[in-house]
Design a protein around this nucleic acid. Structure first.
Length: 108
DNA sequence: CATCTGACACAGA
DNA sequence: GTCTGTGCCAGAT
């Protein structure tokens, strides 16, 4: 699809997210050693492989569901099916479902 | 090369 | 707790 390296990296991390867990755009950016959480969201939007890349498991840092190609409502439903607890359009106890990549921590 | 936009994040009111 | 404004990075024009 001629995706940029940055986008490909985001997708790679997406596949690392286990079912029943979620992560934030900022976390992905940090995992890439960058602060481009904005660009991360852009990568999700550019992703047409919604099935291959479960971008619906990526939410906001505030616990808000955020946006989704098929609509926030659909995203919430998917997360609920994964076992994520959502209320008022936001994840309940995010820390409980939050998934940290923590790829490297000692060296790079 | 300059400028605007976007599936965001943080600070202030 | 909610709303508004500014900062952020990478991509597109």
């Amino acid at each position: 699809m001629n995706y940029s390296e940055f986008h490909l990296r985001c997708y790679a991390l997406l596949e690392k997210i286990p079912k029943g867990k979620v992560t934030t755009y900022a976390e992905i950016a940090k995992a890439l050693n960058s602060k481009a959480y904005r660009a991360v969201g852009t990568a999700m939007a550019k992703n047409d492989q919604l099935i291959k890349r479960p971008c619906h498991r990526v939410i906001r840092s505030d616990g808000d569901i955020g946006q989704y190609a098929l609509g926030t409502d659909k995203k919430i439903e998917l997360l609920l099916q994964e076992g994520i607890e959502i209320e008022h359009g936001k994840v309940v106890n995010l820390s409980r479902f939050m998934y940290y990549f923590s790829s490297e921590r000692s060296g790079n």
